[in-house]
Design a protein around this nucleic acid. Sequence first.
RNA 1: GCCCUGGUGGUGUAGGGGCUAUCAUGUGGGCCUGUCGAGCCCGCGACUCGGGUUCAAAUCCCGGCCAGGGCGCCA
Length: 439
Amino acid sequence: MTRLSNDWRRTHYTKDANESVTGKEVTVMGWIHEIRDLGGIVFVLIRDKKGILQLTAPTKETEPQLLEDIRKLRKESVIGLKGTVQESGKAPNGVEIIPTEIKIFSLANQPLPMDPTDKVKAEIDTRLDSRFLDLRRSSVSSIFKIKSKMLHTFRTFFESNDFLEINTPKLVASATEGGTELFPITYFEKEAFLGQSPQLYKQMMMSAGFDKVYEIAQIFRAEEHDTLRHLNEAISIDMEASFMDDVDVMKILNDLVQKVIINVKQNCKEELKTLEVDLETPEGHFEIVKYDDAVDMINSKDVPMEWGEDLSRAAEKALGDMMNGYYFLTEWPTEIKPFYAMPNEENPINSHAFDLMYKDLEISSGAMRVHQHDLLREKIAEKGLNPDAFGGYLKAFEYGMPPHAGWGLGADRFNMTLTGLENIRETVLFPRDRRRLTP
RNA sequence: GCCCUGGUGGUGUAGGGGCUAUCAUGUGGGCCUGUCGAGCCCGCGACUCGGGUUCAAAUCCCGGCCAGGGCGCCA
């Protein structure tokens, strides 16, 4: 096993060692994908981040020492290869490397805990137990290349629209928001929790005069749900903006979803092809369904739902069947939305809260917020929470809080809609669910 | 947390009271100069755990753990 010495550096990724460098010597670095030893000729496929390249060694024309090294190789071992690029109609990409020297950096033990070449399928649980191997498959790494492009699009958009990136604490003192279960932790001599949402903090930044902020960060929820669309640790993309209402931030969300899709289609062609996804760019404004109308639509499909209830799973499915792609669900009843959602001025039983849905999946939810201190205090009490426990938060509303609005979007769920995946675990490197805490 | 279904070589599976436990892939060895899911020959490797029923349990029963599907919960 050898170290990386000074004269060994990659000159080409596998996909760049093509016809354009025929006859030249190149150095590639990568993993052994497959070995086919035909006796008189040995083929070895080398894989890196960008593709697969064939090494071809006719035994009679290969140095005995080099040949011996090649025959020592095992699947998924890591090597460096120096060789000459040769055009050949018989090679997989039309070119192959005639080796002059190889360095074995790391031999892989056998048998492997799963097959990274897709010949024998493995279940998600097996795959997650050996995630590093699973991720060597292009069908899996493609998901994360798309996710990276998606996150990049959000950041670029926010930065170019004068949003400030913020980092709010994930260690919090109490479960003041109510609703969701939190993970308790020990914080020196006190009890603390992992943050469920940056909601309260990003609102406080409005009082700080930051005007437009965003945060892309982990959120933690201790719910015991065990479904294909819930995790206990997820990435939330949050934004909040002053002097805006729900309609303004819905417009931003609408634009962003379209921008992400356009960008992914443009920059992740190979990845989409690998995943066999044909992404459609939604045009113009997403359809808007008022909560009141949604209740009627759902009941028309014989799924019982009373006004004032949240959507059951059956209701989400029924509505999703009637809708096409992305749509907004608006004017939710005030009583089933959190205390910080602004009630409608004329008809306070309805609110300025909305959800962004993709078929039957909730992607994002947002609202115009309550910025009046006294009203907010009242609403906290109405939810059965103790306003005094919200001291630090409420204080920010007492000394000049602008009207504001914002949303939070589940990045992993959104990624599911881009990649066509049905299990949210697929879209997270190391998912944390009801049972899984490792690796 | 509830309901349903399941757990067999490294991986994916067949079988379903007494079998030498099926097949593929893999893996170790051998043959082969154009492989590309290479081919051929030989070998290796498994019944989730605990208890019970039975002459006999991988198989039936109970419980645990884990998984798949559905639901609930999800500011």
